[in-house]
Amino acid sequence: MTIRQISVFLENRAGQLREITGVLCDSHINLRAISIAETADYGVLRIIADDPASASEKLLEHGFILTMTPVVAVEVPDQPGGLNSVLGLISDSGIDVEYMYAVLGGSNGKAYMIFRVADAEKLCEVLEQNGLKSVPGEVLGEH
């Protein structure tokens, strides 16, 4: 099971991020997770929104460049070594993680990791075979 992540191009200048959050705020969109990757000159803002379809529509309307990517959200056992065991599974199965970030306190107060991999379906299978579950968007508060 995958969820939809929106990635938006960020130019490195004052106020650029605020313009994006402004559009989302005006459209009453709530952010569930956020991560930024950047170079000296530009960055990519990655968000999980409660309403991905309308978030991307509004951002496109305002001229932002974005792309929708399927990512996998995994509940991470809330104990020492929790993330370590999940990463062990992924690495043993030969899946290459492009990037990942944490979501703390989803709607139920648990910890989740968002994984971006080339083959999301394969990651879901591997997780399932090992008794872990990729969670649906609703768990993170998606409508």
């Binding site: 990635s7 191009f9 130019e11 990757a37 990519v44 460049i65 974005l66 792309t67 990517t69 492009e98």
Partner: peptide
């Protein structure tokens, strides 16, 4: 200007 064609969620 960045274009949709050259944009990606991957910084790399």
């Amino acid at each position: 200007e960045m274009t949709p064609e050259n944009f990606s969620d991957s910084l790399a």
